[in-house]
């Protein structure tokens, strides 16, 4: 606790601290929320992450102002790059948005809570176990939630399949309709190149109890990342057949595909 405060004082600049204080995130008396978010750790990690975001990945965003300033929001994006770097970059982008920043929550794979240190750290900076109950309760709490409907199908895919959208689950659409949440489609370009994998050793993954075991360089490459956010999408609730839900999901997927194409066409070089 005191060590954390010490590092926070040393590492978090006054301007950055003032920017983060603009975020209205309800927490308990000791700075925690029920999903394990901790305001102090988050401030420290975001501050350390600014170099990664600005200097290493040189992230460029477009349309971040499309994300509503309040109310339940689902940021739906393509998933790539073995590790959830894309989620952290989207979260950083929104948390440091000049006007009305928000602290979004990223839904993460189910095996993360079992990993010592990392699971806790992810929780403290706002990541949440990807469970529909969590997502529902957060939307009811007016949070902005980042969802990757491809799940591990997206993050675990090989480099040869880059930027090919995998099957989307329908869960996010059900939740958006039930909680009247705004959907913001997002196309992430660049994360596919951060950890390009040429193969997946399935028996090893099974042995380790992880979703995939990629054959890749043991480092994260400094690819330039572009985050393109689309226009808000709203879908009426009510009793809708699953076929219609799938059609709506495809509609979101097609917008994301266009946003990815836009990012790819704007890109001049990989790094």
């Amino acid at each position: 606790m005191s060590l954390k405060s010490y590092f926070k004082d040393k590492l978090v600049s006054k301007d950055f601290d003032a920017q983060l204080k603009k975020i209205q995130k309800p927490v308990g008396t000791l700075g925690y929320d029920p999903w394990g978010f901790n305001a102090e750790t988050n401030r420290l990690v975001l501050s350390l992450y600014s170099g990664v975001y600005n200097k290493y990945f040189r992230v460029q965003t477009d349309g971040i102002e499309n994300i509503p300033t309040k109310g339940p929001v689902l940021i739906i994006a393509n998933h790539s790059g073995q590790l959830p770097i894309d989620g952290t970059l989207i979260a950083y982008a929104l948390a440091t948005r000049k006007k009305d920043p928000r602290m979004p929550r990223a839904m993460i794979e189910r095996f993360f809570p079992t990993i010592p240190f990392l699971g806790n750290l992810l929780n403290q900076i706002g990541a949440v176990l990807g469970d529909p109950v969590n997502c529902a309760k957060m939307l009811a709490n007016d949070e902005a939630v980042i969802v990757f409907p491809e799940g591990i199908r997206g993050s675990g895919k090989l480099y040869k399949d880059r930027y090919q959208l995998q099957r989307f689950g329908n869960g996010f659409m059900h939740l958006a309709m039930k909680y009247n949440a705004t959907i913001i489609p997002a196309g992430v370009v660049g994360c596919e190149e951060t950890i390009p994998a040429i193969a997946n050793i399935k028996p090893l993954a099974k042995m380790l109890g992880v979703p995939y075991a990629p054959v890749a360089l043991p480092l994260v490459l400094p690819a330039k990342v572009r985050l393109n956010f689309g226009q808000p999408m709203k879908f009426d609730g009510g009793d809708v057949r699953e076929e219609e839900i799938t059609r709506r999901v495809e509609q979101v997927k097609s917008v994301i595909s266009d946003l990815i194409d836009k990012g790819l066409s704007e890109r001049k070089r990989l790094f």
Binding site: M1, G28, T29, L30, Y32, D33, P34, G36, N38, N120, Q124
Partner: peptide
């Protein structure tokens, strides 16, 4: 109560 804290921080406090 609608208030939360991590186990290790509770111990420290």
């Amino acid at each position: 109560p609608e208030d939360w804290v991590s186990y290790q921080e509770a111990l420290s406090l």
